[in-house]
Simulated scan of single mutants.
Amino acid sequence: MKSENKEYTITAYTEDFLGLIGRINAIFSRRRISIVNFSAGPSEIENVKKFVIIIKESEESVRRITQQMEKQVDVLEVHYHKNPYLTAIVHAS
């Protein structure tokens, strides 16, 4: 039985940007995984950059991707979590 694809957020902390965006993109391209959202910028820690990547995949696929990302030289650590579905409650007046 195939796992259901859900939306996951991957957060990676890195030492450097130079060439790393291309290497990270290649990890997703080789697996033919579409990125829903990608943002990069400074983190809370000086000289450490933060990548936030949102994809829709199975948890097993996301786990393998994060392991592959951690093998990159400039990557310090990578985490992922399943995105919760937000519901809005509207109160009638």
Rank of each mutant, 00 (worst) to 15 (best):
1 M>G: 12
1 M>L: 08
2 K>F: 14
2 K>N: 14
5 N>I: 08
6 K>W: 01
7 E>W: 01
7 E>G: 02
8 Y>Q: 04
10 I>R: 05
11 T>K: 10
12 A>L: 09
15 E>K: 13
16 D>R: 11
18 L>Q: 10
18 L>R: 14
19 G>R: 15
19 G>T: 11
20 L>N: 05
20 L>M: 06
21 I>F: 01
22 G>K: 13
22 G>N: 14
23 R>P: 02
24 I>N: 02
26 A>G: 04
27 I>F: 00
28 F>N: 03
29 S>C: 02
29 S>E: 11
32 R>N: 13
34 S>A: 11
35 I>G: 01
35 I>N: 05
37 N>C: 04
37 N>Y: 10
37 N>P: 00
37 N>D: 10
39 S>I: 13
39 S>Q: 14
40 A>Y: 06
40 A>I: 12
40 A>N: 11
41 G>P: 07
42 P>L: 04
43 S>C: 07
43 S>K: 08
44 E>H: 04
45 I>F: 07
45 I>T: 12
46 E>D: 12
46 E>G: 02
47 N>K: 10
49 K>C: 00
51 F>D: 06
51 F>H: 06
52 V>M: 09
54 I>V: 14
55 I>M: 02
56 K>E: 09
58 S>F: 08
58 S>T: 15
59 E>A: 11
59 E>H: 05
60 E>F: 02
60 E>D: 15
61 S>T: 15
65 I>T: 08
67 Q>N: 15
68 Q>T: 14
69 M>N: 00
69 M>S: 03
69 M>W: 01
70 E>P: 01
70 E>S: 13
70 E>T: 07
71 K>H: 02
71 K>W: 00
71 K>C: 03
71 K>L: 05
72 Q>V: 09
73 V>G: 00
73 V>A: 00
73 V>H: 04
76 L>V: 13
76 L>T: 03
77 E>R: 15
81 H>K: 14
83 N>D: 10
84 P>L: 10
86 L>N: 00
86 L>T: 12
86 L>M: 10
86 L>Y: 06
87 T>H: 09
88 A>T: 14
89 I>L: 07
90 V>E: 13
91 H>V: 04
91 H>R: 10
91 H>Y: 06
93 S>V: 13
93 S>A: 13
